[in-house]
């Protein structure tokens, strides 16, 4: 679309760079809404990148211009598919973020309790009580590590 004899337009290359960079930065956040914005920016950046891969020129309609002056239609077709797919995935992610907010009061991705429990055992250099044949205090993950639940409560308190 935008690649002449001299190669792709610099403006578009920079646009791809900026979109991807901001998208990745937002993806590293913990709140699903920001991640969603990151996915949108990243998706647009990558779609522009695909467009850069084709030749630029006039609209590829038979009979309007000679074939050598036409733009490459294939990247445009691929981008069209990719845009639809990105759109669908974004919509699903938005639904997940909404559901998360509905259930837990915020859209932050929570810690995995089981994970932290294993880390804790490793830090204390102990084996799981299951290996010793008992049912010890690590039965209930919430009790072993109250931190995430407390953090959620605190955040809710701040909001009110």
């Amino acid at each position: 679309m935008t690649r002449g004899e001299a190669g792709p337009t610099l403006v578009l290359v920079i646009a791809v760079g900026v979109l991807v960079a901001t998208g990745v930065t937002l993806l590293l956040e913990r709140s699903l809404t920001r991640i969603l914005l990151g996915v949108i920016l990243l998706g647009n950046g990558v779609n522009l990148l695909i467009l850069l891969g084709g030749r630029s020129g006039a609209a590829p309609l038979v009979g309007t211009v000679p074939a050598s002056a036409m733009s490459d239609a294939l990247p445009q077709a691929m981008v069209l598919t990719a845009v639809v797919i990105t759109f669908g995935l974004t919509a699903f992610l938005l639904a997940v973020a909404y559901r998360s907010w509905y259930l837990s009061g915020d859209d932050e991705v929570q810690d995995d309790l089981e994970d932290r429990q294993v880390v804790r055992l490793a830090e204390r250099n102990e084996v799981s009580t299951a290996d010793l044949g008992g049912e010890g205090p690590d039965n209930d993950p919430e009790q072993v590590d109250p931190e995430p639940a407390l953090r959620r409560l605190r955040r809710r308190g701040e909001e009110q």
Binding site: L27, L32, I35, V39, L89, F92, L93, V96, A97, R99, S100, L103, S104, V109, Q110, D112
Partner: peptide, 14 residues
């Protein structure tokens, strides 16, 4: 759409 599935699901989706 239970809470724990949404938590693990969001990691997977992203």
């Amino acid at each position: 759409g239970t809470e724990v599935r949404i938590r693990t699901g969001s990691t997977y989706v992203v």
